[in-house]
């Protein structure tokens, strides 16, 4: 093999390595947050507004209970579009998000919950 071909092959290896790093290594170089998504599902029991994070903190009952954050700037809402008590919800949640409330002259954290990525609901209410 000529020196030129060897150099070209090595050049190809470097480019391949560089692209691989961009594709998979970037996740390490700029670690962000957790990406595990899990199910939420149950009756919506309480909803309170987070004035600085512009989300609603929802207490959801079993079987997949917990405190979840419905944030209209992030959460995709599906039929029947009602997040308020006593509608049932089934959706997916993501990382923990604090509920930021106004407390002049600051925003303070007022608990928080798991950020809903998507959720669908029953009609709820009667």
């Amino acid at each position: 093999m000529s020196i030129k071909k060897i150099t070209a092959f090595r050049y190809f290896l470097v480019v391949t390595l560089f692209v691989s790093v961009l594709l998979i290594g970037n996740n390490f170089i700029a670690p962000t947050t957790t990406w595990a998504i899990f199910l939420e599902g149950g009756r919506s029991q309480e909803a309170s507004f987070c004035s600085c994070s512009i989300c609603f903190k929802l207490e959801v009952g079993g079987p997949k209970d917990g405190t979840f954050m419905y944030c209209p700037w992030f959460t995709r809402l599906y039929a029947h579009y009602n997040i308020f008590p006593n509608a049932w919800q089934l959706g997916k949640a993501y990382t923990y998000l604090p509920c930021l409330q106004i407390s002049y002259p600051y925003c303070r954290t007022d608990g928080g919950g798991y950020l809903l990525t998507i959720t669908g609901t029953s009609h709820g209410g009667f």
Binding site: N27, F28, P31, T33, P98, T109, D110, G111
Partner: peptide
């Protein structure tokens, strides 16, 4: 990174 990032935020003291 994969080992570190797989999972769900689970701390409970936030205030």
């Amino acid at each position: 990174n994969v080992v570190a990032s797989v999972g769900t935020t689970c701390h409970t003291i936030t205030t």
